[in-house]
Simulated scan of single mutants.
Amino acid sequence: MSEYTERARGELIQPIILYVDREEPAGEQHGIAAAALASVQAYLQDPANPDWRVWASEAFGKTVRRADAKMFAKVRAAFPEAVLATVGEGSAVGLPPMPADALPKLLAKLQVSGTALPPGVPLPPAPLSIVLNGSLGMSTGKACAQAAHALFAWLVEAKPAVVEQWVADGFPLGVLDLPAKEFRRGARKAAGPVIRDAGRTEIEPGSTTAYVTLSR
């Protein structure tokens, strides 16, 4: 799966707001997992929303924006339908798709570039993990978007019984950051599509960035 290199006018995009505490930010893996989980939980909350179908048929695009405690609270108050996802220390909210060129002002003014979380303590092993291509040197924000792409791509192609069990288990989720050789080797056994980036930001077009693996 890939993103389009240019956004069409009116193209839908899914906003994901990552909580970044100014004094005690979450570890990077925790934030990445929370952002990815927020993306799919927003869908699972209201899969009948027709915007999801339109969005998935277009660029499958996401915008990961960061917010400190004050702005994060404002977003949650302004969008009560937003799904809050928490993984370990990380928190993020996911919203349904909306036009990329007409985001609400509160969301549009949140920063996209330069999002970075400290390494922190790695997440414990989980039966479902997002694998990231560590050789690309992606920022936290970029990694969040690619992880969300991978998890969503897995979700829509996975067998319903597998997804239902994952939900029933409480959405256990891990994150692995592998060097290029190990990443490519693992991609052969990926549980879902291997994500290829369009190269809009940070990395070269066509770079393979993420996929999902299952350990059971």
Rank of each mutant, 00 (worst) to 15 (best):
V175H: 06
L103W: 06
A85T: 06
L128T: 05
A161F: 10
G94Y: 02
A143Q: 14
D68Q: 06
L155N: 05
Q111I: 09
W166I: 11
L106T: 03
R184Q: 15
A108F: 14
V167N: 06
A92M: 11
Q165R: 15
F72H: 10
P80D: 12
K105S: 14
N133T: 13
P104A: 11
E89D: 15
P124I: 04
A153E: 15
V121W: 07
A187P: 12
G94H: 03
A85E: 01
K109Q: 14
L123P: 01
A67I: 01
R65I: 09
R184F: 13
Q146F: 03
G94N: 03
A158T: 08
P99V: 07
P127M: 11
A69V: 02
T86K: 14
E157Q: 14
L95D: 06
F72S: 02
T115W: 01
V131H: 13
P179T: 07
K70N: 04
G90I: 04
H149S: 11
F79L: 02
P127W: 08
P160Q: 04
A92N: 10
F60H: 04
P119G: 06
Q111W: 07
L110R: 07
R185K: 14
V131F: 10
V162Q: 11
F79G: 03
A108Q: 14
Q165M: 00
P125A: 15
P127I: 05
K62P: 00
A102K: 14
S129P: 07
P193F: 10
D101E: 13
E164F: 08
A180C: 09
M138T: 13
A73E: 10
L106C: 15
L123A: 09
G90V: 12
A190D: 04
Q146A: 04
R66N: 03
D101G: 13
A85H: 09
L155T: 07
G137E: 04
P122D: 00
P160F: 02
V163M: 14
R65Q: 14
V75A: 01
G114D: 02
F79Q: 01
T63R: 05
A82S: 09
T115G: 03
I130H: 05
